[in-house]
Amino acid sequence: MSVVEIRGRCVVPGVAEGAAFVSPETISGWGGIDSRTGTIVEMRHPMRGQSFAGKVLLFPGAKGSSGYSHFFHLCRVNGTAPVAQLFTRMTAKAALGCVVTRVPAMTDFDRDPFELIRPGDHVRVDADAGLVTVTRP
């Protein structure tokens, strides 16, 4: 078993943990996800057909329509939201999306999370302490 720690900045406070869902590409809210299931639906997206519901979502950032926050807001309402969000590129869309999803979120990491987090790793996000703990069996 290996344990890795990554430090970063709090975007939305709180503590949560779960299995990692790693999206190597940016995510579009409107037209990119199905908020009824938390599934990526964008054509040509590498994670198309997979759901981030209940997982720790690691993604580079937000793209596309300004409907982004509203669709993550609907994920929260529908119970299909991630349990925590980690992203590397701050934008207004990504920030507002995280705020209205109301789950712990972090960015500005001291090391590249895409190098250190693999799909299915157990990830604990302590946004209050600015700490991500990655456990791999």
Binding site: S66, G67, Y68, S69, H70, H73, T91, A92, K93, L96, G97, V99, V100
Partner: peptide
Amino acid sequence: TNTEGRES
């Protein structure tokens, strides 16, 4: 402007 959302 930034790309704002419904809530902001």
